[in-house]
Design a protein around this nucleic acid. Structure first.
Lengths: 344, 344
DNA sequence: GTGAAAGCGCTAACAC
DNA sequence: GTGTTAGCGCTTTCAC
């Protein structure tokens, strides 16, 4: 009687109802851990057991619960990718190749949108860290000192991309924005241009490119660079408006360096609407070398960044770290190149 | 002695080392479950306890482990967003607003890239289902019968977007591609155009738009529509090439319906290079009404789709379902509109 | 309003 | 090569 009282109403909990590793193991006639090994490390299990487990999996349609696996192994196989906004086309190639490369190794990408002004940064970091990702890839965003501190404190591997800073949080794969600005200055000067202008989004990296472009112009003995600032994310429209502003006051520039290809397209569109010849009266240089740049009329000279390679490299950093391989060096300069086309 | 033997080397497991709810509870002087309630349902806890727990959280920098929470509650607060590829600009607005809207409710988005040919579909579904997301949002992708079956079997809420099909898997928010094709046909006919052509990516939805466009032309007593097919994802380049092909054989069209704005830009670019006047000799209509369409020269007439609204609606579907609210209706037609601009 | 116990589904650690 | 045991860090269930 007493016994019955104890056993009577066992504390039951609603389970998810899905097939579990337990079920698979029972059907295969082995212990759960053996089934686990058959799935994760098949070479450490006898061929017969492997076959039986695989059959059971096929019969039941079992899909391992990665939440449970991640909790038990402290390896979530989740990687956070943080961008200002996914709607800007600049970093898409990087996100795409990052996602693909990680998927090949069994990792999933979680998307984080930080915005351009850093308002949501804190909530975003909390949401990300709470998932215990095996890595965080930061692309095209700045982070506050506080954010940096939290990332460091979390102990999660971090890859910063699309930049080369002196004080990386952890790992870094990018290129020098300063060198880009200098190189474009040198390039345009080599083409005989004299009166430089720039159209730049108000994000920190674009500003750094422009500052270097300007410094290079001064070095070369050219007049000061006219700069038209536009809000980020950059658009075709703001490119058009920026050229209008540049032409409004003072001497007309004969070369414009734009902080994105979309801006450059805007500048070329506006130039055409005004009867200004490109490249005859105005050379235009873009940044990013988006797929459309080569096929514009005239085709657009642009600074080529291999966004796909950056994503793949970042994926390798994360996977290496997650699997305990040594990561050295932790900073990779992917460089850039100026692709010369008709617009200059 | 015996006792010592028993206690001596307890089976120790390396924990993640991070602060846990246990730690917070200990510091606050309450039971773990109480600390949990203070964080998740603060109104069911006394003000003093709440304050103590919040203090402990602040002092320790505690970030809840959502893997553990998800496992225990069978609510992962993860939502999978599946697109053909993130690098095509068409669905970005949808992904962006989906991510934002979900983030406001504490949900994270996991990115899945299905490709345009469905090769990776199976592995992708397995990866997604393994994370036990609270919802799956499918955007711009077709799925095999087998994929459909697996999704259904998983029991996970599914929202299909950017289409209106007769046999939704679960929930649906989109518009009719057939209606789009018909409407564009009617529109161009109203502008006095007679010889229609179309440039279309080889994805199923674009094909449906073109088929309806063609059918509408026949209804209107117009000659058969010339169609130039291009591979997905669509590019400016393939737009240029497509127009070249269209002009090559037979009578020149006086109107082209393109399956993306980028294709339309390609068509306009090629037209200009050939001295063909837009809209004088050729009317051009795009699809998607991307941000740049309005500011092209000439500005581009395009079919406007409110991708942001689609994403937000999909987010609401998922959140409602996850919180147990009734979802009715399960199919929402977001409609579309033709934005008339200079190119037609 | 608060707590004790049990367990979500998996894997690490240790045995044999 | 296989199994036993004990958690991973949280929340549900039940009790007071």
């Amino acid at each position: 009687m007493a016994e019955q009282g104890v056993v009577a109403s066992p504390r039951r909990r609603r389970s998810s109802g899905a097939i579990t590793l337990h079920d698979v193991a029972r059907i295969a006639g082995v212990a759960p851990i053996t089934a686990s090994r058959a799935l994760n490390t098949p070479d450490r299990v006898s061929p017969e057991v492997l076959a039986k487990v695989q059959q059971a999996v096929a019969r039941t349609g079992y899909v391992p619960n990665r939440l449970a696996g991640g909790l038990a192994s402290t390896r979530s196989r989740l990687v956070a990718a943080v961008v200002p906004t996914i709607a800007g086309p600049v970093f898409l190639q990087t996100v795409q190749s990052l996602t693909e490369a990680l998927a090949e190794h069994g990792y999933q990408v979680m998307l984080g949108q930080a915005g351009y002004n850093g308002t949501r940064e804190d909530a975003l970091l909390e949401a990300i860290i709470g998932r215990r990702p095996d890595g965080i890839v930061l692309t095209g965003i700045m982070h506050s000192v506080e954010g940096r501190r939290r990332l460091l404190a979390s102990g999660i591997p971090v890859v910063e991309t699309w930049d080369l800073t002196d004080t990386p949080i952890d790992m870094l794969v990018g290129f020098s924005h300063t060198e880009v600005g200098r190189a474009v200055g040198t390039f345009l000067h080599g083409k005989g241009r004299q009166r430089f202008a720039a159209v730049a989004g108000n994000d920190e990296r674009a500003q750094r490119r422009v500052a270097a472009f300007r410094a290079r112009a001064l070095e070369l003995g050219l007049p000061d660079v006219l700069v038209a600032g536009v809000p980020a994310p950059t658009t075709l429209k703001s490119g058009r408006e920026a050229l209008a502003r540049l032409l409004h006051g003072g001497p007309s520039p004969d070369a414009v360096f734009c902080s994105s290809d979309l801006l450059a397209l805007g500048v070329m569109t506006e130039a055409r609407a005004r009867g200004l010849l490109v490249p005859g009266q105005l050379a235009v240089v873009g940044f990013g070398d988006q797929e459309f740049a080569a096929d514009l009329e005239p085709s657009l000279t642009s600074v080529h960044i291999d966004g796909g390679a950056i994503g793949r490299r970042a994926a390798r950093f994360i996977v290496d770290r997650a699997e305990g391989r040594p990561v050295d060096p932790r900073v990779v300069d992917m460089g850039f190149s100026i692709v010369e086309r008709a617009s200059s």
